[in-house]
C-alpha cells in the first residue's frame, strides 16, 4: 500500500541544511493499524507529510497505492489525496463556518461524481459511526475537542480512503477522550479494513498499536508490535 525507499528529507534553515529524515525505507500493508512513535522533532510529521503527498522527499521514492508520488503533477497529487488518503489533524482543522454535516460532506463534493442521495447516505453513515448523528447542525465551535476530532475522523473516512493518516490525533485531547478516539479508529480499522497510520508520542497509545515504527533524529530506530 505504502512503500518508502531510501527516503531522505532536508529543510533549509537559512543557508544551513537540516536533515529531517535520513534514508528511511519501509512498507505498510493494506489494513494495518500502525503507529509512528518518537519524541518531538524525530521526524514523525515529516514522514506523514511525505506519505500524505503534501510534501516531497529530497531523495528516495515514496509510493502510495502503487504510484510514485515524485512523478505526479500537483493536480494528480491533489486527486490522490482526495481519493486514496484521509487526513486527521492534531488541531482537528474543521471548516469553522460549516456545520458537522457540511464539514463531512465537503470532500464528497470535491469528488464531484456522487449523487446527492449517495453523499447524504455516506455522511449519515459515518457521522453515526463516530457517534455524532445527533449533532449534524452544530458548528465546530459548538462541539467539544473530542467531538471535533470525531467529525474530523468522519470527514477522513467519508471518501472511503485506502489509508487514513493521523498526526498526533489525541495530542489535544484528555486521555479518556483520546482513548475513545483510538478505540473508534481501531473499530473502523476492523470493520472498514482501512489502513491507519498515525503518529504519537503517548506510550499508552503506542501499546495499543499492532505495529510501531520508532523514529529518532530522523532515523528508523526500530519496529515493534503488540
Amino acid at each position: 500500500m505504502i512503500e518508502l525507499k531510501n527516503v531522505s528529507k532536508e529543510y533549509l534553515l537559512g543557508t544551513v541544511r537540516v536533515p529531517a529524515l535520513k534514508d528511511i525505507s519501509l512498507t505498510i500493508g493494506s489494513g494495518e493499524f500502525t503507529v509512528i512513535a518518537g519524541p518531538s522533532g524525530s521526524g514523525k510529521t515529516t514522514l506523514l507529510n511525505l506519505i500524505g503527498c503534501v510534501d516531497t522527499a529530497s531523495a528516495g521514492t515514496v509510493s502510495v497505492a502503487g504510484q510514485d508520488t515524485s512523478k505526479l503533477h500537483e493536480t494528480k497529487l491533489t486527486d490522490l489525496r482526495l481519493h486514496t488518503l484521509g487526513f486527521i489533524f492534531q488541531t482537528f482543522n474543521l471548516i469553522s463556518v460549516l456545520d458537522v454535516y457540511d464539514n463531512v460532506e465537503f470532500p464528497l463534493l470535491l469528488m464531484k461524481n456522487l449523487s446527492k442521495q449517495e453523499r447524504r447516505e455516506r455522511v449519515l453513515y459515518f457521522t453515526s459511526k463516530v457517534g455524532l448523528g445527533g449533532h449534524l447542525k452544530h458548528r465546530p465551535g459548538e462541539l467539544s475537542g473530542g467531538q471535533r476530532q470525531r467529525v474530523a475522523i468522519a470527514r477522513a473516512l467519508v471518501t472511503r480512503p485506502k489509508v487514513v493518516l493521523a498526526d498526533e490525533p489525541t495530542a489535544n485531547l484528555d486521555s479518556a477522550t483520546g482513548q475513545g478516539i483510538i478505540d473508534l479508529m481501531k473499530s473502523i480499522n476492523g470493520s472498514e479494513k482501512t489502513t491507519f497510520l498515525f503518529s504519537t508520542h503517548d506510550q499508552s497509545i503506542m501499546q495499543q498499536a499492532r505495529r510501531v515504527i520508532r523514529l529518532h533524529d530522523g532515523m528508523l530506530t526500530g519496529e515493534g508490535g503488540s
Binding site: 500524505g52 503534501v54 500537483e74 493536480t75 491533489t78 486527486d79 489525496r81 482526495l82 481519493h83 484521509g86 487526513f87 489533524f89 488541531t91 482543522n93 474543521l94 471548516i95 469553522s96 465537503f106 470532500p107 470535491l110 469528488m111 470527514r155 477522513a156 471518501t159
Partner: peptide, 15 residues
C-alpha cells in the same frame, strides 16, 4: 490553515 486543510483533503487550486 483552513485553506491549507481544504487543499490537504483534496481541494484543487481552482476550487
Amino acid at each position: 490553515r483552513e485553506i491549507g486543510t481544504m487543499r490537504a483533503i483534496g481541494a484543487q487550486k481552482k476550487t
